[in-house]
Amino acid sequence: MGLEICEERCNQCLFSENRIVSKTRMAQIVRDCRRNDTYFQCHKHTIAGRDVMCHGYYETQPPSQMQCIAERLNAIEFVPTPKEGL
């Protein structure tokens, strides 16, 4: 098992106009992820107890060290994006 990433953005993606937090909070989340060399987890997968990178984060942010390693090892797996929830 490698690094799981949503295959597409969900309908409430942090990186869309339908986000469930303010733009200010979004900026804080992104800043914290980058400072900690991690990534934003898809909130819908998190509710289900899974650690899956948000596709919007994957598309818009520089890769973390973990993502670079996973890419080099060909260990990235795109998983279905939840359609339900929240």
Rank of each mutant, 00 (worst) to 15 (best):
G2K: 07
E4R: 12
I5W: 04
C6Y: 06
C6N: 10
C6I: 00
C6Q: 07
E7V: 02
E8C: 15
R9E: 14
C10S: 13
C10H: 08
C10V: 05
Q12S: 11
Q12F: 06
L14T: 07
L14V: 04
F15Q: 08
F15H: 10
S16A: 11
S16P: 08
N18S: 15
R19T: 03
R19P: 04
R19A: 14
R19E: 08
R19M: 10
R19K: 15
V21F: 03
V21I: 02
V21W: 02
S22V: 06
S22D: 09
S22E: 09
S22R: 09
K23S: 14
K23I: 06
K23N: 11
T24E: 15
R25K: 09
R25A: 09
R25F: 09
M26V: 00
A27P: 03
Q28T: 07
Q28P: 02
V30F: 02
R31H: 14
D32H: 02
C33N: 12
C33V: 04
C33D: 08
R35I: 12
N36R: 11
N36I: 01
D37A: 08
D37T: 01
D37Y: 06
D37R: 07
T38L: 09
Y39E: 03
Y39R: 09
Y39D: 10
Y39L: 04
F40D: 11
F40N: 14
Q41S: 14
H43G: 00
H43M: 06
H43P: 06
H45T: 02
H45P: 11
H45E: 13
H45S: 12
H45A: 10
T46C: 01
T46I: 07
I47E: 06
I47M: 07
G49E: 04
G49P: 06
R50G: 03
D51E: 07
D51P: 00
V52T: 02
V52N: 06
M53Q: 13
H55I: 06
H55Y: 12
G56W: 02
G56F: 02
Y57D: 12
Y57W: 13
Y58L: 14
Y58P: 14
Y58F: 15
E59Q: 14
T60L: 13
T60S: 14
Q61V: 01
P62W: 08
P62V: 01
P62G: 11
P63M: 10
P63Y: 11
S64P: 14
S64L: 13
Q65A: 15
Q65S: 15
Q65I: 01
Q65F: 10
Q65V: 05
M66K: 13
C68M: 12
C68I: 00
I69V: 09
I69A: 04
I69T: 00
A70N: 04
A70R: 05
A70Q: 05
R72H: 13
R72K: 15
R72A: 15
L73I: 00
L73H: 10
N74Q: 14
A75S: 06
A75V: 00
A75I: 01
A75Y: 03
I76G: 13
F78A: 04
P80F: 09
T81P: 02
T81F: 02
P82M: 07
P82E: 05
K83F: 01
E84Q: 14
E84I: 08
G85W: 00
L86N: 03
L86A: 03
L86G: 03
